[in-house]
Design a binder for these strands. Structure first.
Lengths: 200, 200
DNA sequence: TTAAATTTGCTAACACTGTTAGGTAAAATA
DNA sequence: TATTTTACCTAACAGTGTTAGCAAATTTAA
């Protein structure tokens, strides 16, 4: 009897349509503004139906996160296949990752739980310029003494800050195992590279 | 007449106590769980009183963010003063930044709007191992061909991922000016450094 | 074919959230 | 003493995630 199959198919369609509606809402207004009632409205079903398909709101966002990683993995694989040697594979993947993030901002922000303070908010933080100034000072000094005094110090500040922030935020969400000294090594490695980059 | 002064003082105390209560709540349960009513309960005033001191909830979190940056700036300055030359200043600041982040996680997460997917959530994303695998492969190859075949590939994966993520997330919240090619340069710079680090 | 059991979907509620309108009582001013 | 200002609160509005319980439709069993 194909009736149960039709029902099963319908159920799967519903499941998919919930995710589709959720995704559209996330793209439109960001994952912070996603709500169960908005999804219910979009799929033209009542609220509790959604809970027949997902345990809670977090489960929906988790599914979107997984979708994001699947797409990212797809892009990375493509980059790998396009490159001949491991070196250009690593290079290509970095660009692919970068492109993925900016072509799929909504995905990226869900995947990493990024709240993203808005531009207006950032500009209200006057302390940020003090922060930049503190770091820029020794960078400028080192650049002026180095081989390439025309290096852009802002670019270097950007690199420095990004590396630190990346290291920390990946760590904070990570499995947090006994990686204390491992991280110290990465950090040390990075600083050495950064400084030698300023000089040479 | 000292009465108006007393009143003014009282108002300032109230302002401070709101921030103090908010901060305590953020430390206890994370900035996501902060609520105006909880603050009102803590300071033993009714809800609207808080709106006499802050325009909205975001303004309170913004103030905490500023506090965070002030403390960070303080720590960085301390690191600067402790170091003799620009080189060790840059090094010292990196460690200070790192320590600040992990000794003040609540601050750091407010400052950067970090939603922080929990460990349980992260472990539910099976796609992450595919992701790691994709990147580990060429890294392993390059290490084995390089001068130090005993290098830990996970450490390198960690570095690679952190740098990319840091670059992206700092960029996404940033003023987003015409830094398109600037970022390309940072990225290129990083990749070159990373690859040469794998070989040598 | 009828009776019981299951599925499907909904309404309505609970306990929260940010935010604000409007009122009361106390204090300060005229 | 009368009026205005200040300080503060209650109660509401509109939204949130989540769930209990009910009604109708459908499938299964007798």
């Amino acid at each position: 009897m194909g009736i149960t199959e039709r029902k099963k198919r319908h159920k799967e369609e519903l499941h998919a349509s919930i995710l589709a509606a959720a995704w559209q809402l996330v793209v439109e207004d960001g994952w912070q503004a996603l709500s169960i009632r908005k999804i219910a409205d979009a799929i033209e079903y009542s609220v509790p139906v959604i809970y027949d398909h997902f345990e809670n709101k977090e489960a929906i966002l988790l599914e979107l996160t997984k979708q994001g990683f699947r797409k990212l993995n797809h892009d990375l694989l493509e980059a790998i296949e396009l490159a001949a040697d491991p070196e250009s594979q690593i290079e290509g993947m970095a660009y692919a990752y970068w492109r993925f993030a900016f072509n799929n901002k909504a995905y990226y922000q869900v995947m990493y739980g990024l709240g993203i303070p808005s531009c207006e908010t950032v500009n209200q933080i006057s302390e940020l310029s003090t922060f930049s100034g503190l770091i820029l000072q020794p960078i400028r000094e080192l650049i002026s003494k180095g081989q390439h005094p025309d290096t852009d110090p802002f670019l270097k500040l950007h690199t420095y800050w990004s590396m630190l922030h990346g290291l920390i935020s990946i760590n904070m969400m990570g499995a947090q195992q006994d990686k204390e000294e491992l991280n110290q090594m990465v950090l040390k490695d990075f600083i050495r590279g950064f400084i030698s980059g300023l000089k040479a």
